[in-house]
Design a protein around this nucleic acid. Sequence first.
RNA 1: GCCCUCGUAGCUCAGGGGAUAGAGCGUCGGCCUCCGGAGCCGUAGGCGCAGGUUCGAAUCCUGCCGAGGGCACCA
Length: 609
Amino acid sequence: MKATGCSPTPDHSARNYSAVQQVAEYDHETMADPLFTISSTLRAAFAVVTGLPPEEIDPVVRPSDRADAQANGALALARQLGKQPREIAEAVVATGMLAASCSVTEVAGPGFINLTFKPEFLASELADAAGDERLGVRLAGQQRTVVIDYSHPNVAKEMHVGHLRTTIIGDSLVRLLRFVGHRTILENHIGDWGRQFGMLIEHLLDLGETEGAHELSVGDLNTFYREAARKFDDNDEFKDRSRRRVVELQGGDAETLRLWHLLVDESMRYFNQVYAQLGVLLSNDDLMGESAYNDMLAMVVDRLRDQGLLQHSQGAEVVFADGFVNREGDPLPLIVRNSLGGFLYAATDLACIIDRVERLHADLLVYVVGAPQAHHLNMVFAVARMAGWLAPPVEAVHVAFGNVLGEDRKMFKSRTGDTVKLSDLLDEAVARATASVREKNPEMSPSEQAEVGEMIGIGAIKYADLSTDRLKDYVFDWERMLAFDGNTAPYLQYAHARICSIFRRADLERASLGSIVPSLAAPQERALALALLQFDTTVHDTLDKFSPHRLCTYLFELAQAFTSFYEACPVLKDGHEATRESRLALCDITARTLHQGLFLLGIEAPERM
RNA sequence: GCCCUCGUAGCUCAGGGGAUAGAGCGUCGGCCUCCGGAGCCGUAGGCGCAGGUUCGAAUCCUGCCGAGGGCACCA
């Protein structure tokens, strides 16, 4: 069949273009990245020269300005062996073991080995990656069961920019984890329990169930919550009713539970609309709200008591963990149950750990939670370790993130000082993007303009958030995130769309390109090939640090390498028939890498824009 | 007061032991016989301060300065 643009070729089983969501069933051995390949060659060469066991040697291979790569291992080994670094480096080169893959191997400076790869070697590695559904990305060495805890909006409360960060960082991490072969369990720990539900239920009754439910389901959550809180503060009769209602809720009163369910369901209906607009993987199947752990809380306390960890302090039931002190420098306890007998969120968080480890058999717990929670989570983890619930090989990781700031570098707020509704933010992004699509493509049908505008607008918001180190605060700036130049989603999407445009013009079997070994004569072809081959390492680096911005940086550099190539290397023009197939093959794998990379960030790649 | 995070170009950000610290935006200057110019090529401009470890520090350690956050019954 003829390829049309970037459309998937679903009947071609070897190379389905659509993004890979789950791992292939076969075991995968390709190691496309030449830096990875050369590392093992160098390790062996260093072993020959030094007589050390290969596993004790780090050849310290890095990308280089002066060559394709540089190996700095000689400098570190020189001291330990009492030799000159240059001497070792020269001996490594003299083994001849690098000759198969490198055209130039020179020792420079104090003992760096500069490496230039043979074009044939790069081309062959690239052809391997191109022929692979996973684009040469290795599976994780060890498959883990990972629980990712993220998003967690509060029932009957508006979602805002803070939820945006946890939701899309979590979503990207899920996609990355799955791609390298881990088993993922998504958990949306929604705030669906607590004292505030007394007033929320009473307010629902005051409004009338139908009217109240409507207000929630259409997303007028701010009004609902604010009105309930206002009455609670101003109206003693309402306050009394609310308090009685909390008791009934906790006591399991059927009618109260029905009303509570109504609040949860209507809120989720709204949240699911936001998730759908965002294009994230979360669904109702992933709901594990606070209330889900209610039945475990007494057990948590019992188990802590049985292990002798539970102490009474100022009327509360607490656990003291080493290393935590309060303002006065006295030991700071983790309060599991307050002096009135109520369970606190520490109890729920501990129940979560038990549930995830003992019921779900997770061996990695990922918490995508704001940085201010670091102290609390560290205490919870510490107590869980004391209790033996969190023991190797099980690990817990706090994937922390900073705040979203406005242009004034203060917490992102609307002009009136309110928190900005997430859905309003998404609507505005889509509206802005659609407007520019309409401007650039007047001939495009309105429905396609809307479709593309949504991909660009949502992609821009996500990319702006994901592309900066998650730990830092970042400044929300419409102009910058929606710009079509610079490190933005539209720039990456544009690079992808341009390649799709080439394939619309080219009359060929797209799938056949996978078996072509490209020639890498022009410097831009070489640079593009080198960039493409780093996808594998990048994906694994990104996951090692749980930092999607590493993948963003990579994709931006790849897109830049492509546009430079595209500028300098004619693909379909007359007079370039000899390089046509080779360059089309480069275009093909670039498009697939961009598409897959964006998919791993949760961003769609339109075929025209 | 103690603890955590962060200070890199005018602005927004990468780089987290290796050579001359990279991008983007903005500035300034080139490239339209152009497969999508929403582009490409070039230009100038910087590691908060002070010590220390190291053959080598933006990166690791200590202190200071500055910003943000946390520090007992909300989550």
